[in-house]
Design a protein around this nucleic acid. Structure first.
Length: 429
RNA sequence: GGCCGGUUGCCCGAGUGGCCAAAGGGAUCUGACUGUAAAUCAGACGGCUCAGCCUACGCAGGUUCGAACCCUGCACCGGCCA
């Protein structure tokens, strides 16, 4: 899982399409090539878990660390209380207690990706540390004086919001100042000279470098933005049935996580292998060859799913869900599977309990989480979109399952559509 | 503080007294095709004890046989003025 250190890590990032825009590229290349650079990326606690969109930053941090640079992972205990303005509408504030809880969770999610030992050990930081004690007067005098309102208004999101019906609160308008302070503070405390972030953060990144230029003219700092990851049609990457693909295994099961990557569209598979995995150019070229000549084999997708699941949930979980996927989709005939294999596979799926006897499939689909209401379940049944043990249900809305459908006298596999599965397990009388 | 405009289903957005569970688009779901892909075509898309009923058009009240639509108050958002 290591890549040969490129001559300059910037070239590797470029090859992986991870460099969208940066401050003076020649200078940045020189800096990265001439010693260990301390850099940071920030993650705001806007929810109980990070999702795969955050992975781009996390993994870019990891790549830079592997190239000998020193990461600071910032979880925004302060910025999370304010909210980075979204183009659409004002955010709803979360309570300090809730945000503090999320900070802890995010820290735990980021830590496994970085190395906290050795000469370029990573450090976790929290911007609440240097903002909680700051008075409003200090803030306005020491920091605010460096910001020109005209420039702040010109930032993309701000002007979008200003021109929208939603408008923008002073709170969110101030966000860029807070993020700029982070960079300045990390520059002072840790000699941090590079901030990385998504291209949608470019305005915030440059606000930080500008602040440092004014407050500490002697410091030379850089910013680097990674591109927005999209699907082939340009739409947002990272959504699956129902919502975001979370890193938290309770929110997105390792099986669902694996499935998400496995279902990657052909048109994007090579891009994603570069962006998200640590495979070398040679390995990716081989997978590309396979994807071109034998797309139906989907070796590249399998490699991506395998790597990502292993990276996020561990080798063991990755093997488990890969085996489960093989068993459940491997040809459809479940009766041929032995109890052990089937039980393991079903164990990765959402579960519902089933009593002996006959049950309306409508109720079963809801109980198993495959339909969000009985109406939804009825629609699915009348559409012919339900399957029991991989066999299409033809009975329409009144179809039932019963003890006779049990596999190994214990389980029933229910499916909605092409690939939403759930397991029913027999429970005592 | 004043005046004007806005608040519609997951999102955007039409509707301005009965024909409205609410046009249209997007998202989503299902089917066909296929490779657990994409594109395409077709159907569905508030809930339920489903030919009916219930809930819903910012919130609360009112007018009316009848309200998303009219009136009053409140909340939030925007614009202009002070």
């Amino acid at each position: 899982m290591t890549s040969a250190p490129a001559a300059n890590v910037l070239d590797e990032l470029k090859w992986r399409n991870l460099l969208s825009i940066s401050t003076d590229e020649a200078e940045l290349r020189k800096t990265l090539g001439s010693g260990s650079v301390t850099y940071y990326a920030g993650f705001d606690p806007t929810g109980p878990s990070l999702h795969i969109g955050h992975l781009v930053q996390i993994l870019t941090m990891r790549r830079l660390q592997q190239a000998g640079h020193r990461p600071l992972a910032l979880v925004g205990g302060a910025t999370g209380l304010i909210g980075d303005p979204r183009p659409s509408a004002e955010r709803v504030l979360n309570s300090p207690e809730v945000v503090a809880g999320w900070v802890e969770r995010l820290r735990g999610q980021i830590e496994p990706f970085l190395d906290f030992t050795g000469p370029n050990a990573a450090t976790m930081v929290n911007n609440l540390d240097w903002t909680s004690g700051l008075s409003a007067i200090e803030f306005l005098r020491d920091v605010g004086k460096h910001f020109r309102v005209g420039k702040m208004l010109a930032k993309d999101v701000v002007s979008t919001r200003l021109n929208s019906e939603a408008g923008i609160s002073y709170t969110e308008f101030s966000y860029q100042i807070l993020q700029s302070m982070d960079f300045l503070e990390l520059n002072k405390r840790y000699d941090c000279t590079l901030q990385i972030g998504g291209s949608d953060q470019w305005g915030n990144l440059t606000a930080g470098t500008d602040l440092i230029h004014k407050a500490r003219p002697e410091a030379a700092v850089h910013a680097l933005a990674t591109p927005l990851i999209t699907k082939a049609d340009g739409s947002k990457f990272g959504k699956s049935e129902g919502g975001a693909v979370w890193l938290d295994p309770e929110m997105t099961s390792p099986y669902a996580f694996f499935q998400f990557w496995l279902n990657c569209e052909d048109a994007k598979i090579i891009d994603y292998l570069r962006v998200f995995t640590f495979r070398t150019a040679g390995q990716i070229a081989e997978l590309e060859e396979s994807a071109t000549s034998r797309p139906q084999a989907r070796e590249a997708q399998r490699a991506l799913a395998r790597d990502m699941t292993s990276l996020v949930h561990g080798e063991l979980a990755a093997s488990r869900v890969e085996e489960a996927s093989k068993a459940l989709f491997g040809g459809g005939d479940l009766t041929g599977l032995d109890a052990g294999t089937l039980g393991d596979a079903l164990g990765e799926l959402p579960k519902a309990q089933l009593r002996r006897g006959e049950h309306l499939l409508v109720d079963v689909l809801v109980a198993a989480g495959l339909a969000k209401s009985k109406s939804d379940a009825r629609r699915t049944l009348s559409d012919g979109g339900a399957y029991v043990n991989n066999v299409k249900v033809t009975g329409g809305e009144v179809a039932t399952v019963s003890t006779a459908d049990l596999l190994h006298d214990r389980w029933i596999l229910v499916r909605r559509g092409r690939r939403q599965l759930a397991a029913l397990e027999l429970v005592g009388e």
